[in-house]
């Protein structure tokens, strides 16, 4: 059946071939679903304005341990800061504290929490931990973490400098350029 289809195509006149080609191209753009707009997904503006710190950096160390009562496992992720995009003071290192992690064979997986790997390059949107003010958590769970691969922000398929430029534009628009 597939071979018969190509024989049919070869038999078409040029004008009909062009119409068929345009129709197929049109199908690609109209059949593929459009991105959905969903109410509680955070926009880049919401991520940016609600975050207290935004940094580009590298994951240097991940450690996990039990809380005092041994009822929950928390992880601390040390980030070596390469560029501070938003925040009060210059920091060379930032520590993220989040629920989840592994102690021995036991893992606590928190669905939706960002997953880190040592040596990973990232851009992070952060808020201050309300219990340990010198530490942070990621805004919007995994929405606030953008992995960088080959100088591109993976999730956006965008060069890092362009992505950071967009964030700074939002900051300037909403905060008047205050840092």
């Amino acid at each position: 059946m597939f071979v018969g289809f190509f024989e049919y195509i070869r038999g078409l006149r040029v004008k009909k071939k062009r119409v068929l080609l345009i129709s197929l191209l049109g199908m690609i753009f109209f059949v593929l679903p459009l991105s959905a707009t969903v109410l509680l997904k955070m926009s880049m503006e919401e991520l940016t304005t609600s975050s207290e710190e935004i940094v580009q950096g590298k994951v240097k160390e991940i450690t996990s341990q039990w809380n005092e009562k041994k009822t929950l496992i928390f992880s601390e992720i040390k980030i070596e800061v390469k560029e501070r995009i938003k925040g009060e003071k210059e920091k060379k290192e930032i520590v993220i504290r989040q629920l989840g992690g592994k102690v021995g064979d036991l893992r606590l997986k928190v669905i939706g929490m960002p997953v880190f790997q040592e040596e990973e390059e990232v851009i992070l949107f952060l808020k201050k931990d309300e219990k340990q003010l010198n530490k942070f958590y990621v805004t919007g769970l995994s929405e606030g973490k953008f992995a960088i691969k080959k100088e591109k922000v993976e999730r956006k398929n965008m060069p890092v400098r362009q992505f950071i430029g967009n964030i700074k534009h939002i900051i300037k628009k909403f905060d008047g350029g205050k840092k």
Binding site: L40, M42, L72, F74, R97, Q98, L99, G100, K102, D105, L106, R107, L108, K109, V110, I111, G112, M113, K127, D129, E130, K131, Y137, V138, T139, G140, L141, E143, G144
Partner: peptide, 18 residues
């Protein structure tokens, strides 16, 4: 306090033996 973001409507946590 758990590090849960305010826009998270609900969270499931799973403990498992790796």
């Amino acid at each position: 306090l758990y590090g849960f973001s305010s826009n998270a409507i609900a969270i499931a946590t799973v403990w498992y033996n790796e």
